[in-house]
């Protein structure tokens, strides 16, 4: 219920702010290649600080998937980062989704700026699934996204919505929260 109400709020906000966001859309990908290199590492690092609901025995051997929805801004960085890495016994793989419908079993989903206009829809579709949604689109956290990358002074900072994470059934390590900005204050 709360999530629904927040969803609506987020939706409204995103509608209100839709213009400037969309106006940025056609613009080429901002941020340097280095910035996405960092973000790729961060994505990988989330596997260390985020707890997913216990995997079923069937899922135990399946890889952990980091998905990219929309345009891929990472190039080969993300692939390079996760190559050969494992979380426990589970290997890491990267999957790229063109459409929301394509999103299957993934643990982390990076929502590219190309999909920012559909953010509310995406958030609504994924809110019951234990997927850590990450985006570097502005205000993404306020529309139901869990983690938002904010670049300030050439540094990538984290903004986390604890309530969204909770709704998704994810546990965020307090260590991670410690280094992040908590976004919930505005949503409530």
């Amino acid at each position: 219920m709360i999530s629904l109400r927040r969803f609506l709020v987020l939706f409204a906000v995103s509608v209100l702010l839709g213009l400037p966001m969309s106006s940025a859309m056609p613009a080429p990908q901002t941020g340097s290649a280095q910035e996405y290199q960092v973000k790729a590492v961060f994505l990988y690092n989330f596997t260390q600080f985020v707890g997913w609901p216990p995997a079923t025995p069937a899922e135990a051997q399946t890889p952990i998937v980091i998905g990219i929805l929309g345009d891929d801004p990472f190039g080969s960085y993300l692939d390079d980062t996760v190559r050969g890495e494992k979380v426990g016994d589970r290997p890491l793989i990267v999957r790229r989704y063109r459409h929301l419908d394509d999103v299957d079993d993934c643990q982390i989903l990076f929502i590219s700026r190309s999909e920012a206009v559909h953010f509310d829809q995406i958030a609504a579709r994924l809110k019951d699934r234990s997927i850590l949604t990450v985006s570097d689109a502005d205000q993404s956290g306020k529309r139901g996204g869990i983690v938002r990358f904010v670049t300030e002074n050439d540094r990538v900072k984290l903004h986390i919505s604890v309530s969204s994470a909770k709704d998704a059934g994810l546990t965020i390590s307090s260590k991670l929260l410690r280094v992040a900005e908590i976004d919930d204050g505005a949503g409530r």
């Binding site: 260390q48 600080f49 990538v156 984290l158 390590s173 991670l176 410690r178 280094v179």
Partner: peptide
Amino acid sequence: AANSTAALAFENQRD
């Protein structure tokens, strides 16, 4: 070290 993992992982120098 345990406390500083996140700070290092997410390059939070201040933390």
